[in-house]
Design a protein around this nucleic acid. Structure first.
Lengths: 345, 345
DNA sequence: CTGAAAGCGCTTACAG
DNA sequence: CTGAAAGCGCTTACAG
C-alpha cells in the first residue's frame, strides 16, 4: 500500500437552497419554485435561479425533501442470494424500470437468514423507503413479511405464501411445455426429461408442463418418469448414461438446467451419439457462459428474469400510488434456439 | 393475474418520537436521549421510554436524523456490470464489512456508460450518501470521478487512473507467479500459458507473473509466448490443439480463466492425454460452477474479490472519518487446489 | 409573481 | 435528571 497523501475530512459544507437564493437575489421559497418547475415564477427569475444553482453545483438535499413530503424517493431491494444467478437479472430489470436517477435503490442481501432479513427490513423502514421488493432464488413460495408493514411490498421470482401479497414469478409449467413442444417440432418423439433437485417447485413445475405437452401429443416420457437428481453437470452425466442404457432409442433430452445439459452432452459424446443429429438436447436457464460455451451450443429456456424485475418495479410503483391488486402474476419464459436442437432436414 | 383485493394507500402516519414521548410522559428531548443511550437520563425513565417505543413499534426517521447530523448512514455502490461475475463478490464483501443495519447501501449499475454513471453519482449525492465505492469489472485503470466530490470515493477491482484516489485491486502478477509455482511444485517443467484478450491488463499481468516465476526456476514458457485469444471455452479448445501440435511434450497448461481451462480439458481429452497424469491444468477465477463441474475438477486461482470489497468498505469508513491515505492497495489471490493438478506420486 | 412563516422529525446545546 | 428552544434544508399554503 502506498501512502502518498493523507487528506483530512475538511470537506466544505454542501451548498443549500439558501445559497442559491442569495446568489440569485430571491427568497428560498421562490428559488424552490423556480427549480421545481412551479409555474408561478417569472421566466426571467427562473433563469437567474437556475444559473445560480448551476454556478454553485447545487444538489438538492433529498433528505430534507423526503422528510417534508413523506416520500424518500428510495426503494429497498432484499435478496437472499446475491451470488446466485437468479437475483441479479431481476434486480437489473427493476433498476431499469425505476429509471436512472429518479428512484434510488437500496440493496440488501439477507443470505437466506430470516433474522438478517428482519434487520434489513427495519433498517430500510428507518430509511423511510417508499416500498420494498423481495427477491428469492427459487420459485418455492416464501414466508410473507406480513400485512403490517407501513410500505407496500412486491415479491419477485419467489412468490409470497400469502395470497394477500403481490408476487411476480416465472411460469415454469408453461416453460416445461414449451421445451417439449420445441423438441416435438424438431420431429422428436422419444423424449426423456433429466432434472435437478425434486424438492424444488421449479423442478416439479417444469416436469408437469413437459408431461402435459407430451400427453397432448399422445406421447409419454421415455422411462415413464422424470429423472430427478441434482442441478449439476455430474448428475447430467450420470443420468444420461443411465437413461441411455435403458432406452438407447431416445431421440431427445429435455434438461432441467444448462449445467445438467452440459453433463448430458458430455455423456452423449462419449457414447458416440451425435447432437443434434441423433439426439436433440435442450437446457434451461439460458446461462450464457454455459450455453454458448457448450459444443454444440445449447438451446435453452430463458426465464425472462429481467422482465420479472421490471414488472415487480412497476407493480411496486402502482402500489405506492395506492393501487395494489394482490395475487401472483406469472411471466412467460422464452425459447432461445441454438445448435443443440437444430433440425437438419 | 388474479385480483383478489385492491387495497388503497390508506397507510397510517408512521409513529414519531413525539408519539413515544407522549406515551412515556416525557418530552421529546428526553425521549431522544433515552433511546440513544445518552447518560443524562434516569434509569427508570429510560425504561418507560424504551417500552413506549416498543409498544408503538417506533422506527426512528433516518431522514430527519441525517438532515440534522449531516450524515445519512448510507453509502453508494456504483458498478459497471452487475451481470458480470466480478462485481457481485466485491459487493458482498463490502456489504459484510458495512454490517447489517448500521449502514445502508445504494446500488447503481452504470452499464459501463459514463453518462449514466454521472446521473447515478448525482442522484447519490442528492441522497447525501456519506461515501461512494466504484466497482469495475476488470483491472484496467478507469477514469477518476474527479477530486471535487463532496464525499470520499474508493475504487474497487478497477483502480482509478489518478494516484490521488484510493483504489483496491487484485494482484494479478503475483497470481500468475502463484499458478506457475504450483505447477512447478507438482513436478511440471514444460508449462504453456493460454490466456484471454491481451488488451486486458489482467491478462498481461498474469502473463508477466508466470514468466517471472518460470524465469526464477530457469525455465521458459512452452512456445516462448503466452497464447492470447479470448476468454472463452472455444479459444481454450483451439489454442490447446495448436499448442499441443507444436509441443506435444508439454506437461502443464496455465489457463487465464476457468472457461479457457474447460476448453483445454476438452481438447486434451480428445487427444487422449490424461489430466492430471500426463498434463496438469490450472484455471483462473475459481468460478465454482465451472471449476467444480469440470472433469477432473479444476484447480484454480481465486482473486479474493470478497476481500477486495471488504477492504474497500473499511477504507471508505476511514476516509469518511477523515483518514484517507491515497494510492493503490493490492489484495493477494489464493490457490484453490482440485483434481486437475493432483500430484499422483 | 414574490416572500414570510410554518413545519416535516429529529438532536443538541442550554437553562433549570 | 428534564424540558423548551433552535435548527438541519427544504416545500407549501397563505398573504401581499
Amino acid at each position: 500500500m502506498t501512502t502518498e497523501s493523507r487528506r483530512g475530512a475538511r470537506r466544505s459544507r454542501a451548498t443549500t437552497l439558501t445559497d442559491v437564493a442569495r446568489l440569485a437575489g430571491v427568497s428560498v421559497a421562490t428559488a424552490s419554485k423556480a427549480l421545481n418547475g412551479r409555474d408561478q415564477v417569472k421566466a426571467e427569475t427562473r433563469v437567474r435561479v437556475v444559473e445560480a444553482a448551476e454556478r454553485l453545483s447545487f444538489s438538492p438535499n433529498a433528505l430534507a425533501r423526503g422528510l417534508l413530503q413523506g416520500r424518500s424517493g428510495t426503494v429497498g431491494l432484499i435478496t437472499s442470494d446475491l451470488d446466485g444467478r437468479f437475483s441479479i437479472p431481476v434486480l437489473m430489470g427493476a433498476e431499469d424500470a425505476f429509471g436512472t436517477g429518479s428512484v434510488s435503490v437500496f440493496l440488501c442481501d439477507a443470505r437466506g437468514d430470516a433474522i438478517r432479513e428482519r434487520h434489513h427490513v427495519n433498517a430500510l423502514l428507518s430509511q423511510r423507503v417508499d416500498g420494498l421488493i423481495v427477491v428469492g432464488y427459487q420459485t418455492d413460495p416464501r414466508p410473507s413479511l406480513g400485512p403490517d408493514l407501513p410500505v407496500p411490498v412486491v415479491y419477485a421470482y419467489a412468490p409470497s405464501e400469502s395470497p394477500d401479497d403481490v408476487s411476480i414469478t416465472a411460469d415454469n409449467v408453461e416453460a416445461g411445455a414449451m421445451a417439449v413442444e420445441h423438441l416435438l417440432s424438431c420431429g422428436r418423439r422419444r423424449i426423456a426429461h433429466i432434472s435437478g433437485d425434486p424438492t424444488y417447485t421449479a423442478a416439479q413445475d417444469r416436469s408437469r408442463g413437459a408431461l402435459r405437452a407430451l400427453d397432448d401429443a399422445g406421447l409419454s416420457m421415455v422411462g415413464d418418469q422424470t429423472y430427478f437428481g441434482a442441478w449439476t453437470e455430474a448428475w447430467g452425466r450420470a443420468a444420461a448414461r443411465l437413461v441411455h442404457r435403458q432406452h438407447p432409442d431416445l431421440d431427445a433430452i429435455f434438461c432441467g438446467s444448462d449445467q445438467i445439459a452440459r453433463g448430458v452432452l458430455d455423456t452423449l459424446g462419449e457414447l458416440g451419439r451425435d447432437v443434434p443429429r441423433d439426439v436433440s438436447v435442450i437446457g434451461f436457464d439460458n446461462w450464457e457462459a454455459i450455453a454458448t460455451g457448450a459444443r454444440p451450443a445449447l438451446t435453452s429456456i430463458d426465464m425472462n428474469l429481467e422482465t420479472i424485475g421490471e414488472r415487480a418495479a412497476k407493480r411496486l410503483f402502482r402500489a405506492i400510488d395506492g393501487d395494489a391488486p394482490s395475487g401472483v402474476e406469472s411471466v412467460s419464459c422464452r425459447l432461445v434456439t441454438r445448435e443443440s436442437t437444430l433440425t437438419l432436414d
